[in-house]
């Protein structure tokens, strides 16, 4: 009798690629939705940024630097487009597959959960970068902004380091549908809305009531927005925004492993209680 070979588990790079390739194929098949999100994101960016023009023409702006306001709002909407794309994509890790009916087949594959989640995160970030760049390009056609002083390296560094923290948040949000098959996705959208409120996307967080300030402090999005505005509006270099970068690095180092550990616990709980799938 031939003896059974030791099972061979696929390599890390192969698994990462499996998820990235799958998400890319899905994205191609759902290109019409992609277009919808692009248009929606672009329109939202334009709509908010036009507020600055309104301030200008109303004459109320004698004491306001309107060009600065345009840039402030533009960065806010673009960063938010980026963050919500990352959050949307990654937090659907369970819910999407539950909807397709593939969740059990994916979870029984011989891959480490951390690599599975990492693959989803890498795709989510790349996808969000592409979409945000397109929105940015569209917005540039509508607004004359002076980007001469911008320090792009510092902005990119903030975004890169911040993406780990946001990915961690997104994985945490993605755990909810595992725990609450019925309401989980709604809950994760509420979290996203709250992050929008407290992180200073369209205003400085100082304008928030005092009781919301602590939430601004613990939201990684606050530091991403501060850092990128510092780099692009005020031309600060990496050294100038090191505080934001350091804070984001700490958030990432805490959130990403914590979110993966949480996912693992939630997965075991779902397997104990039969929440993964019932039919078939």
């Amino acid at each position: 009798m031939v003896s059974i070979a030791m099972p061979r588990a696929p390599g890390t790079a192969g698994v990462l690629w499996a998820f990235i390739e799958r998400q890319t194929n899905l994205w191609k098949r759902y290109w019409a939705w992609e277009l919808v999100w692009l248009v929606y994101g672009a329109v939202n960016t334009l709509a908010v940024t036009f507020i600055a023009r309104q301030v200008d023409s109303s004459g109320a702006a004698a004491s306001i630097d309107v060009d600065r306001l345009v840039l402030f709002l533009l960065i806010g909407t673009l960063v938010w487009a980026y963050l919500s794309a990352v959050l949307d994509d990654i937090s659907l890790v369970v819910q999407w597959e539950r909807w397709e009916g593939t969740i059990e087949h994916t979870l029984m594959a011989p891959v480490r959960r951390s690599v599975h989640l990492a693959g989803m995160c890498v795709f989510g970030v790349l996808h969000a970068v592409v979409r945000t760049m397109l929105i940015f390009a569209i917005a540039l056609a509508f607004f004359e902004v002076d980007l001469g002083q911008a320090d792009w390296l510092a902005a990119a560094t903030v975004l890169f380091v911040g993406s780990f923290a946001v990915a961690g948040l997104a994985v945490l949000a993605g755990v909810l549908p595992l725990l609450y098959p019925e309401r989980g996705q709604q809950m994760s959208m509420m979290i996203q809305a709250f992050v929008l409120l407290v992180s200073g996307v369209y205003y400085e967080v100082d304008v928030l009531p005092a009781w919301l300030h602590p939430f601004a402090v613990i939201s990684p999005a606050t530091y991403i927005l501060d850092g990128i505005r510092g780099a692009i509006i005020d031309g600060e270099g990496v050294a100038g925004v090191w505080r934001e970068i350091a804070a984001l690095a700490v958030f990432g180092a805490l959130l990403l492993p914590a979110s993966m550990a949480t996912f693992a616990v939630a997965e075991r709980w779902a397997k104990r209680t039969g929440r993964l799938k019932r039919q078939g």
Partner: peptide
Amino acid sequence: ENLLFFGRVYGLT
């Protein structure tokens, strides 16, 4: 496309 994904996660190329 489905089989490509479900094959890759089992180590197939």
